[in-house]
Nucleic acid binder design. Structure first.
Length: 611
RNA sequence: GCCGACGUAGCUCAACGGCAGAGCACCUGUUUUGUAAACAGGCGGUUACCGGUUCAAAUCCGGUCGUCGGCUCCA
């Protein structure tokens, strides 16, 4: 436990984001311009397909899209043509004009446009308006730029299917995505960043760094980890296990199969069946692969007799869960069917919720800081009273649980963004959203309050009064799904992991064959010290060995030639800083061991300038 | 699951109705190498799988499997 980073480190972590407002956002000038670009795209598509039916075309985070129903499927080759028509429209500098319309006018205007008619019906209570530029007219609230000439440089990016209004019950439309910026430079930068993101794609790096593979013979969505990927998993898991232990959680193990009956009792079956694999019929009972641990942990809790003095009981487990995700939803490591969760269930009294909450947040902050995620905020996922049937329990239980979460967050001074309808069926959640090095958001940690499952599964403890009481259960995950978190780490670090996580921490590169025995003794020494060291004993030139170690993003390359053998040193080259110079073997060993032990994010070796 | 695109050697890609190719990787030699790619030779594919059209299919058509981009940031 001596190796654990001190808690002071967490000071840089916790939530400095201030965005508790959920008021409707004003459209920014850039969004307005992109919205106008979407109109111009619809104009261009109508020129090419006069029979096109229009869906909607909003601005989005980095551009815009528009949905169409078209007589034939679009291919990527169609995009340049549409883009060219858009440029012509922009050159003509056609003014955008707004006009309020009555419902009757609108219905007449869009009589050939079934999707617009549906929208008119929906918005008929408010004020309806249309925007026109040139001959193109669209039902639209606006606002828009004053004329098409104000639209900056554009680029159409892709086309894809999209259900009308996002529901698979509706027809599938064809969506075209585009981006638009104020200046050519910003557009170029955006396209360049897309390219960078592709370079960092964890699926590409996973193959190049020999971390994991998928095989159709084993099945889609089931990642197979190679030795280097397993080394990474093991470090991730050990770290969280160590931290959880430090914070008073205790680890349990509950296997992979559970009787179907238990999921019926817990209330999962009707709501979760879609993502569960079909039943496994055994001789004595029908089983299911576990898609979550909660019922198992509650059952485990129930096998022991608990006094109020035992609470809180904190059960943690690194469990592999199986979810039958739809084939189209699978995505590398970030959406898989065999998923490992750092799951935890805390059984406590209502009075203990706040302190347990704050303990969980402290743990989460520490872990996030160690991984270098300093920018994150909390999304408070609440139930939606409009769709109460999706949730268990009555309204009173819900408002109590939600209030408790708010109180706990407020007491800790944590700011949060409430979102309706994102709760689990058993309770509200505080979800931690973190940004990676490329500024993309990932949902990682979660803390959830549950009054419903412990009631269904009959959890109880004996209170001070000698009578049985029901504990509250807090569900909590730190890194969430290991696979998904690994995907994020790979992309966040671009494969160049901090030394403590790197599958290979040190590459020994002997210059000539006569230096191999010395390098081998160094490698063996390091391996015995717990350093993941590899020896490149091929009869290749040094430059090649360096190049390959560098492409594998090994943090330290140790070059051994005549001078090093002579002096019992290694010539150190760091992945990031190049040639650092020679160090005695023992000195390098203690420096890197310290770097690993403290889980430093960047190299801690002395700067070559100061040597 | 749905819409679209794509599956050619371990990897990246070419050939687009007429003999399946290149670079890297791998293997074998030669080279013994000082901070991001030595040189030469060799091995390697029933073009994802199954069926169809054709004198002829990697190429055209159908099916299966897989991968990729998406599937409300609401007029």
């Amino acid at each position: 436990m001596e190796s654990r980073p001190s808690i002071e480190r967490t000071s840089r972590a916790m939530v400095e984001v201030d965005n508790t407002d959920i008021v409707e956002k004003q459209m920014s000038p850039l969004e307005r311009m992109r919205h106008s670009a979407a109109h111009v795209m619809a104009e261009a598509v109508l020129e090419e397909f006069p029979d096109a039916k229009l869906g909607i075309g909003p601005p989005i985070e980095s551009g815009f899209y528009y949905d169409f129903e078209l007589p034939r499927p679009l291919t990527p080759e169609d995009l340049p043509e549409i883009e060219e028509r858009m440029r012509r429209s922009i050159e003509q500098d056609k003014p955008f004009e707004k006009r309020p319309v009555t419902k009757a006018e609108a219905l007449e205007l869009f009589k050939g446009q079934p999707y617009k008619l549906e929208l008119i019906e929906q918005f008929a209570n408010g004020d309806l308006s249309v925007f026109q530029h040139g001959d193109f007219i669209d039902l639209c609230r606006g606002p828009h730029v004053s004329s098409t000439g104000d639209i900056g440089p554009i680029k159409l990016l892709s086309n894809a299917g999209a259900y009308w209004r996002g529901s698979e019950k509706n027809p599938m439309l064809q969506r075209i995505y585009g981006t638009a910026w104020d200046t050519r430079e910003e557009l170029e930068e955006y396209l360049h960043n897309l390219e960078l993101a592709r370079e960092r794609d964890h699926r590409k790096l996973g193959r190049e760094l020999e971390l994991f593979v998928f095989s159709p013979d084993v099945g889609s969505g089931i990642p197979l980890f190679l030795p280097k990927g397993e080394a990474l998993r093991y470090q991730m898991e050990s770290y969280v296990r160590e931290t959880q232990t430090y914070y008073g959680y205790r680890h349990v193990w509950t296997g992979h199969l559970v009787k179907e009956e238990l999921f019926r009792k817990s209330g999962h079956l009707p709501l979760y069946e879609e993502v569960q694999f079909p039943p496994l019929i055994g001789e004595d009972a029908t089983y299911r692969l576990k898609p979550m641990n909660c019922p198992s942990h509650m059952t485990l809790f129930n096998t022991q007799y608990h006094s109020y003095r035992d609470l809180p009981v904190r059960y943690a487990e690194f469990a592999t869960l199986y979810r039958n995700e739809k084939s189209g939803e699978l995505h590398g490591l970030s959406r898989v069917r065999a998923v490992t969760q750092d799951d935890c269930h805390i059984f406590c009294t209502e009075d203990q919720i706040q302190s347990e909450f704050s303990r969980a947040i402290e743990l989460i902050s520490e872990v996030m800081a160690t991984y270098g995620f300093t920018e994150y905020y909390v999304q408070l996922s609440l139930h939606d009273p409009e769709t109460a049937e999706k949730y268990g329990g009555d309204e009173g239980v819900w408002s109590r649980a939600e209030q408790m979460l708010r109180d706990a967050l407020d007491a800790l001074g944590v700011t949060y963004v409430p979102v309706l309808g994102e709760a689990a069926f058993y309770g509200p959640k505080a979800d931690f959203m973190a940004k990676d090095a490329l500024g993309r958001e990932w949902q990682l940690s979660t803390i959830q309050i549950d009054f419903i499952q412990p009631a269904r599964l009959g959890c109880e403890y004996i209170g001070e009064d000698g009578a049985p009481h029901m504990p509250v259960v807090i569900h909590r995950a730190v890194t969430g799904a290991t696979e998904r978190f690994m995907a994020m780490l790979i992309e966040h670090f671009g494969g160049a992991f901090p030394t403590w996580l790197a599958p290979t921490q040190v590459a020994l590169l002997p210059i000539a064959e006569r230096h191999v025995p010395y390098a081998e003794t160094v490698r063996e020494r390091f391996t015995r010290s717990g350093i993941r060291a590899e020896l490149d004993d091929r009869s290749e030139r040094l430059n090649l060995k360096i190049r390959e170690a560098q492409l594998q993003k090994v943090p330290y390359m140790l070059i051994t030639g005549d001078k090093e053998v002579e002096a019992d040193t290694v010539s150190v080259r760091s992945r990031s800083g190049g040639d650092i110079g020679s160090l005695p073997v023992s000195e390098f060993e203690s420096l890197i061991l310290k770097e690993i032990r403290t889980r430093a994010l960047t190299s801690t070796l002395p700067d070559p300038e100061t040597l």
